[in-house]
């Protein structure tokens, strides 16, 4: 698909701008603040609904755009605007790795109030605890990659683009 070098050039510009915008969104919305995240996850004490609104707004924008801009293109076999094929997950079954992974992820999220995006965005503070968290997170991902490659359980259906 990337025969035209100019397209590939635009591709990386788009990727860079989108990710910078994403980081700003996380900062402005307060997703980067672990205390706020823990307040959002805390149902017993004073629940902080602001992040629920953030997630809902992000979801509303994305799903409407997906429904009216992207889905019609996928249905008519058109590629993305820059001509690259859409890389969407093909798996549709609920399997054990998905639910187990999500459950484990939630426990870690609830312990520290950090998930991968905000953790990386917070790296710019050069805070020792953030650095340690990200390092541990990378080790965790590596362990899972190793586990998926070596396990005899059939995890192979979770293809690499399934994220």
């Amino acid at each position: 698909m990337r025969t035209n070098p100019n397209l590939s050039y635009y591709f990386y510009i788009v990727v860079f701008l989108c990710s910078a915008l994403f980081a700003l969104g996380l900062q402005i919305s307060g997703m980067v603040d672990p205390q706020k995240v823990l307040g959002f996850l805390s149902i017993s004490r004073q629940w902080d609904p602001s992040l629920a609104l953030v997630l809902f707004a992000a979801l509303a924008v994305f799903s409407l755009g997906y429904r009216y801009l992207i889905k019609p293109r996928i249905d008519t076999q058109q590629p993305s605007i820059l001509g690259m094929a859409y890389q969407l997950p093909k798996v549709t079954v609920l399997d054990k790795p998905l639910l187990l992974g999500a459950a484990i992820f939630g426990i870690g999220w609830g312990l520290a109030g950090l998930c991968p995006g905000p953790a990386i965005v917070n790296l710019v503070h050069f805070d020792a605890k953030i650095l340690a968290f990200v390092a541990a997170m990378l080790v965790g991902i590596k362990i899972s990659q190793w586990y998926k490659n070596h396990s005899t359980v059939d995890c192979s259906i979770s293809n690499p683009s399934d994220r």
């Binding site: 992974g101 426990i107 870690g108 999220w109 340690a132 968290f133 965790g140």
Partner: peptide
């Protein structure tokens, strides 16, 4: 610190095994 490192490991492992995180 101990819980934080544990949390990082769980977040990384879980997000990869479960094929995704919050985003």
């Amino acid at each position: 610190w101990l819980l934080l490192i544990l949390a990082g490991l769980l977040v990384g492992f879980g997000a990869h095994l479960g094929s995704g995180c919050t985003s």
